[in-house]
Amino acid sequence: MSGAILRLDDVHTDIAQYHILHGISMNVPEGGVHVLLGRNGAGKTTTLRTIMGLWRARKGAIVFRHHDITAMPTPDIARLGIAYVPENMGIFGGLTVEENMRLASTTGRFDDERLGRIFSLFPAIEKFWTSQASGLSGGQKQMLAISRAIVERREMILIDEPTKGLAPAIIRNMIGAFREIARETTILLVEQNFLFARSLGSGVAVIDDGRIVHSGGMAELAADEALQTRLLSLSLAEQH
């Protein structure tokens, strides 16, 4: 598919003796928010970690722009412009908010204009700038994790379940922030929260048992309750 920033082609990943991804094939077009939906244990996190090189694909190919990143070390993948926000947020609790942000900047310096935009998206980051990150609340940590990912312009951001355990007010704030971020970068978002995913996503892929079982436009899935029920199980359809 032309215009794809990221392409996964028949990717298989094992974790220890377990075969988790059974041939994931997926194209992520450039720009906007693309959502990978699926129930717990379907292989969403494994897919992101395999893209990031944190777990190795046993078979298949992962191509980012024109680079085959299938066997590339994680730091090299990151340096191609892919940022990763893991499910546990990956915050360095012993470091201050500023140090967390500085570490994510390639030069160790900040672009003041960009930092100003981050502060307007997430005022808590400015408020707690010199505080130790371990003292932040769950929502503030998530804001820091996302701010860290956008401290520089990235080609793509992989975000793993950012709404997990967050209050509805914070989720609403995050929807606005993601829309803003998606103006300049491509986001691949892993989610279980269909309401959140629906409000952001332009494209969607549904993963089940390590395979992509559906891909297409988000509007199409949002409009088709029967499809939601079939693909995402009752628990997700109930949220709708």
Binding site: L54, P75, A83, G93, G94, L95, E99, R102
Partner: peptide, 24 residues
């Protein structure tokens, strides 16, 4: 120092340091 910052971060979470683009 930046190296020191990396070491402190690496002690906490090596994987995340690599995900930020540093060869741990």
């Amino acid at each position: 120092t930046r190296i020191g910052l990396l070491i402190r971060a690496g002690v906490e979470n090596r994987e995340m340091v690599e995900s930020l683009g540093f060869r741990i």
